[in-house]
C-alpha cells in the first residue's frame, strides 16, 4: 500500500451511496458551527455589557426576547429537514434498497475473536452448508465437505476482495461475540451479532487497497482485528478468486 488515502478530514469515500452520508455530516456541522458562533458572540457580548461595575444595577423585570422562539422554531424545522431529506432516505437506501440478487456478488463474512472469515460461494454461486459443530482452526466457517455445493467454495481469512463497480451483498454473522464490520472508505459499519445473519450492501467506484476494521469491543485482541479490503478490476478479481479456489 503506497498511496495514502487518509488525512484529517473524513476518509475518502469510494462508495456509490456514501456521498449522501458525507453531505449530511457536512451540512449538520456547518449549521452547528453557525449556531454556536452566533450564540457565542451574543454570550460574550452579554457578559461584557452586564458585568458588575459601579453605578450599574441589575433589572428585576428583564427584557422579553422574541428572537429565541424563532431560533428554536428554525432549529426544529432544520431538524425536520435533515430527517426528511437525508436521514430517512439514506437509512431506507441502506436497509431496503438492496441490489437485485442476481446482479450482486454475494459474500458471507463470519466474524470471530479476532479475525474476519470471508466465505465466497465459488463458481456455482451457491454457498456450501455450514455448521457450528464443524468449526475448528482448519475449517473456520464450519464448511460441510460432504455437501456438493461446498466443493468450490473459497474461504479466506482477513482478506476481502471485491470487483469495482459491482454491487456486493455481504451477509454478516458472528461465531462468538458482537463485532462491528467497518469499511471506513465505503461508509459501511454494521454490528455483527451472534445468532443473527445481517445483510449489508455496497458498491465500490474505484480500485485500491483499504482495510476492514472492527468497531465494537470484542475482547483483548479487538484493536488488532484488522482485515484487508481490496477493490480490484473485474479481471484481477476473477484471477484472484481462481487462485484461491480449492485445488
Amino acid at each position: 500500500m503506497t498511496q495514502n488515502y487518509y488525512g484529517w478530514g473524513l476518509p475518502i469515500d469510494i462508495s456509490t451511496h456514501g456521498a449522501g452520508i458525507d453531505k449530511l455530516i457536512w451540512i449538520v456541522h456547518i449549521a452547528m458551527v453557525l449556531l454556536f458562533v452566533g450564540w457565542l458572540l451574543f454570550f460574550v457580548y452579554t457578559l461584557i455589557r452586564f458585568r458588575e461595575r459601579p453605578n450599574h444595577k441589575a433589572e428585576h423585570h428583564g427584557k422579553h426576547f422574541k428572537l429565541p422562539t424563532y431560533v428554536e422554531i428554525l432549529v426544529a424545522a432544520f431538524e425536520v429537514f435533515l430527517l426528511l431529506a437525508f436521514a430517512m432516505p439514506l437509512w431506507n437506501q441502506a436497509k431496503n434498497q438492496m441490489p437485485p440478487d442476481d446482479k450482486a456478488l454475494h459474500i458471507r463474512v463470519i466474524a470471530q475473536q479476532f479475525a474476519w472469515n470471508i466465505h465466497y460461494p465459488g463458481k456455482d454461486g451457491i454457498f456450501g452448508k455450514t455448521s457450528p459443530n464443524l468449526m475448528d482452526s482448519s475449517n473456520p466457517v464450519g464448511l460441510d465437505s460432504s455437501d456438493a455445493a461446498a466443493k468450490d467454495d473459497v474461504v479466506t481469512i482477513n482478506q476481502l476482495n471485491i470487483p469495482v463497480n459491482t454491487p456486493v451483498i455481504v451477509k454478516l454473522s458472528s461465531k462468538d461475540v458482537i463485532h462491528s464490520f467497518t469499511l471506513p472508505v465505503m461508509r459501511v459499519k454494521q454490528d455483527v451479532i451472534p445468532g443473527q445473519s445481517i445483510p449489508v450492501w455496497f458498491q465500490a467506484t474505484q480500485t485500491g487497497d483499504f482495510e476492514i476494521a472492527c468497531a465494537q469491543l470484542c475482547g483483548l485482541g479487538h484493536y488488532r482485528m484488522r482485515g484487508f479490503f481490496n477493490v480490484q478490476t473485474q479481471e484481477d478479481f476473477n484471477k484472484w478468486l481462481q487462485e484461491q479456489a480449492p485445488k
Partner: peptide, 19 residues
C-alpha cells in the same frame, strides 16, 4: 449538545458510531 445532533441521525451514525 450540538455534537449529539449528527449522532442522533442514523445515517450519520454509520460513519460516526463507535468513533
Amino acid at each position: 449538545g450540538l455534537t449529539g445532533l449528527p449522532l442522533g441521525l442514523a445515517a450519520a451514525d454509520i460513519h460516526l458510531h463507535d468513533t
